[in-house]
């Protein structure tokens, strides 16, 4: 493995997390990660060492997701029973409560328009600065903060009805 490949392997957990926000379904999300990794390696010449690898790969993922969304009518963003069963742990009520909380957050996120959801994910989940997130989305910073504001307002309105 060369250096870039090693860094991509190290980045896989974060790529999976962002993909999970975008695609929700675990298998779809992992497909998106695989696509992202394959595209990144095909276009490896475009990555400038010394720049943030995660920003570059998040941008590739965002573009792959847009292509994917255009390529099909997206399946209703619901968790299938099969998927649900994959998450069921053997541990009791506490785990169930945590699961319900995750479900509430995922539901609220799923109702956001894609562009707001990605903005929220990059800043609040991935911890990117406004500048970095705007670069990933290839939009001016004002557009990013506007999406971020609308997304957050909608999430707050929805989630305050189901306090953690």
């Amino acid at each position: 493995m060369n250096r870039l490949e090693r860094e991509i392997v190290d980045l896989l957990p974060r790529l999976r997390r962002l993909a999970r926000v975008l695609a929700r379904d675990v298998a779809d999300a992992d497909d998106l990660v695989q696509l992202t990794v394959e595209r990144a390696l095909v276009h490896r010449g475009q990555w400038r060492p010394g720049t943030q690898l995660h920003s570059w790969m998040f941008r590739i993922m965002k573009n792959a997701w847009i292509d994917e969304s255009r390529a099909r009518t997206r399946r209703a963003a619901v968790l299938s029973p099969e998927e649900d069963a994959l998450h069921v742990g053997s541990d009791g009520a506490g785990a169930m409560e945590a699961r319900l909380e995750v479900r509430a957050v995922e539901d609220a996120m799923a109702r956001l328009p894609d562009e707001q959801r990605v903005a929220v994910a990059l800043v609040l989940v991935e911890g990117l600065s406004y500048k970095e997130a705007a670069e990933v989305l290839e939009v001016p910073q004002g557009t990013l903060t506007s999406r971020l504001g609308r997304g957050r307002a909608a999430l707050l309105a929805e989630l305050q009805a189901t306090p953690s």
Binding site: V9, L12, R16, D30, E101, V102, V105, S164
Partner: peptide
Amino acid sequence: RLSEAYGPVVREAVPLRLDLAARTAN
């Protein structure tokens, strides 16, 4: 709440196919 909902994903074990995609696509 967002970090807590999505945080655990990064601690999950990575599927083999993703690991392989990163190391063999070249």
